Amino acid sequence: MTRALILDTETTGLDPTTGDRVLEVAAIEVVNLLPTGRAFHRLINPERDVPPEASRVHGFTASMLADKPLFAAILPELLEFLGDDPIVAHNAPFDFGFLDAEFVRAGVPKLSRSRMVDTLEMAKKRFPGLPNSLDALCRRFGIDLSQRTTHNALLDVQLLGQVYLELMGGKQPGLALATAGGGSLRVAPAAADAAPVSRTPRPIVPTPEELERHAAFIAKLKDPVWATLEG
C-alpha cells in the first residue's frame, strides 16, 4: 500500500519572507494513487490583512477569517494527518516555503524536502513547452473544471489528485473512476452481469513459399544447436 497526501495552501501573498501568511490549507489522502475519502481542511486567521489582489484569487478577506484559529492551533492535527508520507503539490516549493515559515514560527521542524513531489515539474517533463498550470492540465486530461471559480484549496487538491493519477500513468484498465460526495474519487467496480468479451482465435499458418524460405535460411546456419539434439 502506497500512501501520499495531495496538498494545497492559499496565502495572503507570494512571499513568506516579507510577512505573507497561510490562510487556508487542505490535503487529501491517496492510497495507490486513488483518494480514500479522508481529507484535512482548515481556514486560518493569518493575523494580518489580506490584500485585494490576493482576495481576487481565492475569495477570502481578513474579516471572513477573523474568527478562525491561528496556524499554531491547527498544526498538531495537520502534522498527524500528513504523517511521514510523500506530499504532492503543484509548484510544491511554493507551498513548502510557506509551511516552512509557519512551522518555524510555531517552533516545529520544517518538512523534509525528500517528501516533496512537485506535479508542476512532472508536467513540464511530460509536456515540455506547453502550459502546465492546474487549469491547463485539467483541460488536457478532460477533468471537469466547472466548479473552479476561485482558487479554493480543498477543490484544488481534489482536482490535483485526478491530475496526479494521470501524470503517474492514467486510469488503470478495468477501473472506472466516479466522483463521490465531496468530490473525492472512488473505484467503481465493473457490473457483475457484464457480458464476457468473446474473441475468435486467429491461428497463423505459414504458406508453402514461407516454409521453403525458412528452410533455406536454416540451412545456412553453421552447426545449429538443435541439430545435435535427439528427436
Rank of each mutant, 00 (worst) to 15 (best):
D8R: 00
D8V: 02
D8A: 08
E10Q: 05
D15A: 11
T18M: 14
V22Y: 06
E24K: 09
E24M: 10
V25M: 10
A26Y: 05
I28Q: 07
V30D: 05
V31L: 11
A39S: 15
A39G: 11
F40A: 07
H41F: 13
I44C: 07
N45I: 11
E47D: 14
D49S: 10
V50K: 04
P51C: 11
R56I: 12
A62R: 14
S63M: 13
A66N: 10
D67K: 11
K68Y: 09
K68F: 06
L70S: 10
A72S: 12
A72T: 11
L75I: 01
L78P: 02
E80A: 15
L82S: 04
G83K: 01
G83P: 00
D85L: 09
I87D: 00
V88K: 03
P93M: 07
F96R: 00
G97T: 01
L99D: 00
L99G: 00
A101N: 09
A101E: 02
F103L: 08
V104Q: 14
V104C: 12
R105V: 09
K110S: 08
M116A: 08
T119N: 00
G129H: 02
L130M: 15
P131H: 07
S133A: 01
C138H: 07
C138L: 02
R139A: 15
R140L: 13
F141Y: 15
G142S: 13
G142H: 09
I143P: 03
S146F: 01
Q147W: 04
H151D: 01
H151A: 01
L155Q: 03
D156E: 05
G161F: 04
V163T: 03
G170S: 12
Q172I: 15
G174W: 08
A176V: 12
T179H: 07
G181D: 14
A192P: 08
D193N: 05
A194G: 11
A194C: 09
A195M: 05
R199F: 15
P201E: 10
P201H: 07
P203A: 03
T207A: 11
E210F: 07
A215K: 14
A216S: 07
A216H: 09
A219T: 08
V225P: 08
A227S: 15
T228G: 12
